[in-house]
Each structure stands twice: as structure tokens, then as C-alpha cells.
Design a protein around this nucleic acid. Structure first.
Lengths: 237, 237
DNA sequence: AGAAAAACTTGACTTATGTCAAAAGATAGG
DNA sequence: CCTATCTTTTGACATAAGTCAAGTTTTTCT
């Protein structure tokens, strides 16, 4: 069966995966083995819910493949996207330290697989491993900084600028910055991106059109070619 | 001299202060002594800069008295307020774990005093004290959650609603929720609050007027009386 | 392949909110 | 106590962006 294959394949390369994740970097072989012994592989079909706001907290996840959106539903029924989770990002670690239920919803926006780390076991591991504590603190600090920047974005700039920032960030992540014809492949729907940059699909659609008219980007389905990186940069400021 | 007085007075009550701060709660007497031996009392005059973006990281602060704003200046010269720091809040801890300079500016918006904890000494203390690590993780987690909510606010709601949320939060903090005539005393200028809720003074001024016209609040200088808490709550949703 | 459901685009309209300008109030220093 | 500075208010105006509605395109599923 295909699934079994994927699973064993993953097991073979887990070591490498762990080492590329900030949370577990700087751990010894032995410590990585301990970490690995806690991990449980989970698969999620597209659109399936991983956890919901208010669910009893069980532990956190480390995305291996696919895409996950972390979101909340506001009182007036609108969806607010907090985070777009990419492979090798951890999610759902926040409640581990305060005994509260999950504070947000997590849904797979594509066929995904993730490692699950159960709360209590992981906490014991942390008790014994200061390195993991410090790494996790560093990870939280980085995220706090990132959110801080996002707030800045939301208050001080317009949707076009926020999208420009988003594109450049994505470009960096994919390493396609230096190519002569840089492009970004959208891994999630435009609706989700719109939500993430804090606007609605209609406005997002108009932004794409405007940027195309000005020959800054070229949209072909889910691929966005950046035809004028300097100007995109200046929009992102 | 007056300063000396204040200093010794603070020293006498530091124990209580530490115990009321989440970061240091659950520490033993002995551990608190260690913490205290690192702390250095600092005074800041109104409008003085505590640290600036890009400054070499030295350590973090714990505000005892006064008020501090954490902010950044965006490319186009506008100020984006990230955090309004109140007594017993810690600030400037983020870079401790990654060796980067201060990522934001901190300025006293009133006569303030704070305890300073130097980075390296505090890190050694953390090495020895898992409890502090876990408490700090919990603190970071709480702040991440808080920022998350703030982002939600900024994207999905209007300035009036954000201000209603702000007022209710302040009311909670001051414990004046149950009084028959609840009120909030603004500790910072309206300009700063406007920035914090993501708008400009003019809009903020209009919001105050509108809420007064609707007999939801009554503004008297720096004091805001809440005359219709249920309706304010429904605005905050 | 073909139908049903999503996802996306486009247009017309409304509105919250930012900007500029000017005046009124409040505050602090000499 | 008075002047200079800073904060807050008010008005007029411009505009980014949300909403509603109706298409069009793409994806998904049988």
C-alpha cells in the first residue's frame, strides 16, 4: 500500500528532518532518538480538521508535507487566518504550558502529513533537556517578532503593500530570489492568501490585476512570475 | 536624596513583586534571591528612550512603575505601537535567545522605574532553573496568543470595536468591572492609544465623541466612565 | 466526459478611515 | 501668570477597501 511506503520512507529520513528544524537543532543523537520515540505520524486529507478551538489539548504537531491553515472564526462569522503553516513548521505548541484547550482551529488545506508530539511526554522530555527549552524559547521569540511585524503591516500599510511583502517573503523561502525570472508557486487558494494578508478575495483579485497591468507580476494559474522585482520590493518597502 | 529612598523602599517589597509576576512565580525563596541578585534598578524620565531598534542586546526589563511604549518606525516614518507596557510587565526579552540586537524601540511615556536583568547572567540562571524556563515559555505563549487576538482585531473589526475591546480589557486589569460606575483611567495620551488600536488621533477623537453621543461612555479628561457596560460589551463582541 | 461545486473575476455602490488644515484646550517652564 | 508647546477636537475631502450581485473559469467527483 502506498501509505505504508510513505511512512517507512519518512522514518528513514526523520533524523535529517529533525536536524533541519530549529526546535531540535543542537540536540545530540541520543536526544533525537528520545524525541523520535515520542513522535507519531499522522495523515490528513485535504480540508480535514486537525483540531478545533476549544478542543482538549493533547499535544502539538510538526508539519512534514502539505499545508495547514491556523484560523479563528470571529463573532460575526468571518474567518481570520492567523498562520499559514508550511512543511517543517510546528503548530499547536502554545497551550502546552498553561493547561488551556486549543485556542485556534487547524485545518489541512492540502493532503498533509505531520508528526504529533503528546503534551505530557514532551514536557517530561523538556524537563530533562534544557536545550529543547531554550530552542523552543527561541522559536517563540522568533514568532513573536514575526507577529509583531505582521501587526505593523496591518496597521500601517495597504493591501497591495502587504501582498508585495508576502510575495517577497515567499520568494525568499523558496530560494527563487536570485533567478533571472523569479516566480512563486501558490500552495494555497487565493481566498486563503487574501485572508492571510487581511483582505477579501475581491480586493485580492483587483490587486493581482493592478500589479499585472503595471507589469510587475504575471499570473498564470497558481504561479506568479515576478517580472519587476525592484518595483515589487519598493512596494513591499 | 529622594532616589535612594525609592530604591530602598523597592528593595523591601521586591519579594512580593517577584511573587506577583508570572515569570517568577513558583520559585523558591532561594531562587528568588538569585534572581534578585541579578536585578538592577533603573529610573527613566518621561519621554526618555530605554533602548532603540538596532542597539546591541544587553538584557531585559521588568517595569515597576510608570508606563512604557514599545514601538517601531515604519519606512514611511509612521510610528507603529506594538505594546503598551504596564507595571509588572516584562519587556525586551525576545532577543535573549537568538543573539540579535533589540528589534524595537522602548520609550518611557511617564516617569518610570524598572528592574534590569543582564542577558548572560539571566541565561545562566535559566540553565540552572527549569522552572524559570517553563514560566518564560508560558509567558511567551500567552503573548503569542494575545498578539494573535490583536491581529484578528485589526483585520476583522473596525476602530470602534477595537477601542471597545481595549476599554474592557483595561477595565478588567484595573478590577473596576464590578463597580456600579465603572471607569478607566488612561495612563497614556490619546495619541498613543489611537496608535495602539491601529488608528490616528482624529479618528480616535471621533470615536470618543460618537460613544459619548450614544451615552455609552463619559469622558472627563483622562478618565473614561463607562455608563453602559452591556452595550460596550456588545461592541467589543 | 459531464455535471455540480468551488474558486475566481468584474462591476456598481457604500463607507470607514486616513489626510490636510485650522482652531481650541491643556500643560509646563520661565 | 503668561507664553510656548503639545494635545485634542472639528471640518472638509479623498480614497482604499468592503459588500452585494452576477458572471466566468477551474476543480472535483461520479
Amino acid at each position: 500500500m502506498k501509505k505504508k511506503n510513505a511512512e517507512t520512507a519518512n522514518k528513514g529520513t526523520r533524523r535529517e528532518i529533525y536536524q533541519s528544524i530549529p526546535l531540535f537543532s543542537q540536540l545530540t543523537e541520543e536526544q533525537l532518538n528520545e524525541v523520535d520515540s515520542l513522535a507519531r505520524l499522522c495523515k490528513f486529507r485535504k480540508n480535514s480538521t486537525i483540531f478545533s478551538e476549544g478542543d482538549k489539548y493533547e499535544g502539538f504537531y510538526l508539519l512534514l508535507k502539505g499545508a495547514v491553515k491556523a484560523y479563528r472564526i470571529t463573532e460575526d462569522g468571518k474567518e481570520s487566518i492567523i498562520h499559514l503553516i508550511k512543511p517543517y513548521d510546528a503548530f499547536g505548541e502554545l497551550p502546552m504550558f498553561e493547561g488551556n484547550p486549543y485556542p485556534i482551529n487547524a485545518q489541512a488545506t492540502a493532503e498533509s502529513s505531520a508528526l504529533f508530539f503528546p503534551k505530557n511526554e514532551f514536557l517530561s522530555l523538556m524537563e530533562a533537556n534544557r536545550r529543547i527549552c531554550l530552542n523552543m524559547l527561541a522559536g517563540f521569540a522568533r514568532r513573536l517578532l514575526h507577529l509583531t511585524r505582521k501587526i505593523e503591516d496591518l496597521t500601517s500599510r495597504e493591501a497591495v503593500n502587504r501582498f508585495a511583502s508576502y510575495l517577497i517573503e515567499e520568494l525568499k523561502k523558496s530560494g527563487g530570489e536570485k533567478k533571472k525570472e523569479p516566480f512563486v508557486k501558490l500552495t494555497v487558494s487565493k481566498k486563503i492568501i487574501a485572508g492571510y494578508i487581511g483582505t477579501v478575495t475581491e480586493t485580492f483579485s483587483r490587486i493581482l490585476k493592478k500589479l499585472q497591468d503595471e507589469k510587475i507580476i504575471l499570473v498564470e494559474g497558481k504561479t506568479i512570475y515576478i517580472t519587476d522585482l525592484p518595483r515589487l520590493r519598493s512596494l513591499a518597502k
